[in-house]
Design a protein around this nucleic acid. Structure first.
Length: 843
RNA sequence: GCCGGAGUGGCGGAAUGGCAGACGCGGCGGACUCAAAAUCCGCUGCCCGCAAGGGCGUGUGGGUUCGACUCCCUCCUCCGGCACCA
């Protein structure tokens, strides 16, 4: 702990407790919808209550709190809520380990999180606090699920799904990172064939892309790019290749983005899982080595079908099925192969291999001796020979078609257009658009989540639980082992129920929902957190939405942020809301690092929020995280730099303390610049200039670090004018100190409130309006103009503001230092930026 | 491989085409003190020079411009995302 300076009375613990209590008593941060007032909804992503909060978390909340406080001071009706993403696997695992209940573990953490956030003075409206593990909340997850079921947006399907052996549950595609579980970086995800619940996110694939136009201004380009890649739109064509022997098998449909290269297709390649594969192998004569080879290779391919991180570098393997198909354009017989590099889950599960113009096809065909035929020649004049090609020619823009019948000579883009049209006209193909995005798998074989509100009746089959019977409550007493099937499945009191339709015996669905469901719409609930008739009152949401500023980590660029966009569009189509995007602006703050890596409990490099508050107080912690780096950048924690923030707050405090008695009783200054002495005029000028620039930093750029630097400079300027009482009238000094405290207040609210009180105000700082800029008071009447000769700085000239070019030129030529660089040369050009700079071009 | 982002003193960083290095940390010096801490003041990019002053300087090389950390192109390095997606 730094020594408390003897000369100051700043005691952060005392000050912070005092004002937190006052804010709570006076309900300063409680807000309600008020159509007469302009609103501002600022939100930080809700935390998962686990462990303890460290300064990495606090940085995120501090940024949001500064914005909330500034907007409040600027007259907005500000909604700034907080809640808990309370369902999830860590609670369940911790409960198993510690022989407790997930609810108990979670609530203990929530209490601790709340205490920490209060200690940092974040201006939340705590009446709106929500916890997603409460039936009052998750019943609306179930309600939404039933609405989606009605609309066909929720469905059950048996499909190959991702299974994490450590989580003991399936995962959505978004939760698989490079073949690994998003929670367990070291654990490969396995594939299992299971019947599961999906939400039809793909129904909105095109809209996800289309609506980026609403987000271009307010969302980081990076996030948009990541989502765009994730949705993965491809334009191309489906083309059917008929069997060479009529009726031998169903025509094989391939998807291609390069139909222009179809004359160069020297094989068709099917995925191992393609429905036709078994039939084609079956058609091979029994007992032949070809058949044996095909069967063996297929078995091998299926065995290694697990997704792995190095899929891209895996060796290509395949075999010939013995069958041929006909190229619908050329009529050529094309061998049908099976290849491990063709994915069943994308396109049609079958491709045409064009080795001359695709790298993967090239590798495959070279390996198996299939011919390489060039059908697009570069415009450069170079003539490629398929037999000698060392790499495929993949470019679209710089080639023209050859060996392609009637399409010879066309540019690829033109050929694609024409060939799709012809394929459609001749009935063997059509232009198609496909997406990489998959539907959202939401079933989880775990306990601590929202029960899926359907039952299975022997007579009526799948029956949705009627709305009136919601919520389907998660039973409290369940054996948690962390192994085997869904814990709910081993709880007969839960499983066994009656069919809502026929009243006969029925079984409940025993899976729970992905916890990303909880966080997909929680920000709507904040608008109306205690509604027990509906998820929210549409009128209240209409007032507050969209979120004006959403703040959180880049980790959720795809997961949470894509699911939230989906939920919003679904709610819109249900008629609950009218907007299409939940958050108008998104800010992704940088991480807090220590020793070059993100703070995390498992790495043991955290600086706890309480540790920080104990040592320096919350205000110093807030100030430091804002000052040490711009908010979007990662911040490397430095104990020494914190001392700087601590020193600065003490320095300001001492300044106020010293002059409080002098200014306390002073009347409000009359804002007449003519009433000022030169010293006063200069001090007022610096103050108002600072105010203007700090306001800009808050409003448009979010450069909190440079805003603080400016406030530090202002403080230095005031200090430089000691002895103050002799030089500056009390009313003028009061104006200056008031502004200093106001500017600082969004970032360090407790000490600012204390100083505001010391300055003689009894009305509380948190409801003060942001000071208005008086341009006249910020204006310079004298300026120092840098003078360059050929772009090099050669001198500076002090002069009245607004001086004309001719005059400044004369002054420059008269300046000895500058003149020496002009001697013997002639001025070819004069560039004068008024009040900014003079550049003389000489030759 | 593809798509983003970044690269500025010893360190964190500032500069919206116009004085590069604000502000802070660290360092050096001074004041105060018996002394120390705290505080206040000053100096602190590199090189040459006693100094005045001059030269160099924002990853590299080029370009646009009167003027480039900033805009354009080339390359290098680091970070992030995606990746057998036809």
């Amino acid at each position: 702990m730094p020594e408390q300076p003897a000369s100051t009375g700043y005691d952060p613990q005392k000050v912070e407790t005092k004002w937190q209590k006052r804010w709570q008593e006076e309900r300063v941060f409680e807000t309600d919808a008020d159509p007469g007032k302009k609103k501002y909804y600022v939100l930080e992503m809700l935390p998962y209550p686990s462990g303890t909060l460290h300064m990495g978390h606090m940085r995120n909340y501090t940024i949001g709190d500064v914005v909330a406080r500034v907007k409040r001071m600027r007259g907005f009706n500000v909604l700034h809520p907080m809640g808990w993403d309370a369902f999830g696997l860590p609670a369940e695992n911790a409960a198993i380990k510690n022989h407790t209940h997930p609810r108990e573990w979670t609530n203990k953490n929530i209490a601790e999180f709340q205490r920490t956030l209060r200690r940092f003075g974040f201006s939340y409206d705590w009446r709106r606090e929500i916890s997603t593990c409460e039936p009052e909340y998750y019943r609306w997850n179930q309600w939404f699920f039933l609405r989606m079921l009605e609309k066909g947006l929720a469905y059950r399907k048996k499909a190959p799904v991702n299974w994490c052996p450590k989580c003991c549950t399936v995962l959505a595609n978004e939760q698989v990172i490079q073949g690994h579980c998003w929670r367990h970086e070291d654990t490969l995800v396995e594939t299992r064939d299971l019947e599961q619940w999906f939400l039809r996110t793909t129904a909105y694939a095109e809209e996800f892309l289309e609506d980026f136009k609403l987000l271009e201004e307010g969302w980081p380009e990076r996030v948009i790019t990541m989502q765009r890649d994730w949705v993965g739109k491809s334009r191309g064509a489906n083309v059917r290749f008929a069997p060479a022997e009529a009726g031998a098998f169903e025509p094989i449909e391939v998807f291609t983005t390069r139909i222009d290269t179809i004359y160069g297709a020297t094989a068709l390649v099917l995925a191992a899982g393609h429905p036709l594969v078994a039939r084609l192998i079956g058609a091979l004569p029994d007992g032949t080595p070809e058949k044996a080879h095909a069967e063996a290779t297929l078995a091998q391919m299926r065995q290694t079908s697990v997704k792995t991180a190095d899929l891209a570098t895996m060796e290509k393997v395949g075999f010939f099925t013995g069958s041929y198909a006909l190229n619908p354009f050329s009529g050529e017989r094309v061998p049908v192969w099976v290849g491990n590099f063709v994915l069943m889950g994308y396109g049609t599960g079958a491709i045409m291999a064009v080795p001359a113009h695709d790298e993967r096809d090239f590798e495959f065909c070279r390996k198996y001796g299939l011919p390489v035929r060039v059908v697009v020649q570069p415009l450069s004049g170079e003539v490629l020979d398929g037999a000698k090609l060392s790499a495929p020619f993949e470019e679209h823009e710089t080639g023209k078609l050859v060996n392609s019948g009637e399409y010879n000579g066309l540019a690829p883009e033109k050929a694609i257009e024409k060939m799709i049209a012809d394929a459609e006209a001749r009935g063997f193909g059509k232009g198609t658009i496909i997406y990489k995005l998959r539907d959202w798998l939401i079933s989880r074989q775990r306990y601590w989540g929202t029960p899926i509100p359907v039952v299975y009746c022997e007579k009526d089959g799948l029956v949705p639980v009627p709305d009136a019977q919601l919520p389907v409550v998660l039973p409290a007493n369940v054996k948690l082992t962390g192994e085997g099937a869904s814990p709910l499945a081993t709880t007969p009191e839960f499983v066994n129920t009656t069919c809502p339709k026929c009243g006969g015996p029925a079984r409940r669905d025993t899976d729970t929902m992905d916890t990303f469901v909880d966080s997909s719409w929680y920000f709507y609930r904040y608008c109306d957190p205690h509604n027990d008739k509906a998820p929210f009152d549409p009128a209240k949401v209409a007032y507050w939405f969209p979120i004006d500023q959403y703040i959180g980590g880049i980790t959720h660029a795809i997961l949470h942020l894509l699911y939230s966009r989906f939920w919003c569009k679904v709610m819109r189509d249900l008629g609950l809301i009218t907007h299409s995007e939940p958050a108008a602006r998104l800010f992704t703050q940088g991480m807090v690092l220590k020793g070059g890596v993100a703070m995390s409990k498992s790495r043991g490099n955290v600086v706890g929020a309480h540790e920080m508050a104990d040592k320096y107080g919350a205000d110093t912690g807030r100030l430091y995280t804002l000052f040490a780096a711009p908010p979007e950048k990662d911040l490397e924690w430095s104990e020494e730099s914190i001392d700087g923030a601590w020193r600065f707050l003490n320095r300001v405090y001492r300044l106020i303390e010293k002059h409080a008695d002098y200014v306390k009783q002073a009347p409000k200054w009359n804002f007449d610049p003519k009433s000022l002495t030169d010293d006063e005029r200069e001090l007022i000028r610096v103050t108002y200039k600072t105010m203007r620039r700090v306001t800009q930093d808050f409003d448009t750029r979010w450069h909190f670090n440079s805003a603080i630097a400016l406030i530090m400079e202002l403080t230095n300027e005031i200090y430089a004018r000691e002895p103050m009482a002799a030089k500056v009238k009390a009313s003028v000094l009061k104006e200056v100190l008031d502004i200093l405290v106001l500017l600082l207040s969004p970032m360090t609210p407790h000490i600012a409130e204390e100083m505001w009180e010391m300055l003689g105000h009894s009305n509380g700082l948190s409801r003060q309006p942001w000071p208005d800029i008086v341009e006249e008071l910020a204006a310079d009447d004298e300026v120092e103009i840098p003078v360059q000769v050929n772009g090099k700085l050669r001198g500076k000239i002090k002069t009245a503001a607004g001086i004309a070019q001719a005059e400044i030129l004369a002054l420059a030529q008269g300046d000895a230092g500058i003149a020496q660089h002009l001697a013997g040369k002639s001025i070819a050009k004069v560039v004068y930026v008024p009040n900014k700079l003079l550049n003389l071009v000489v030759t």
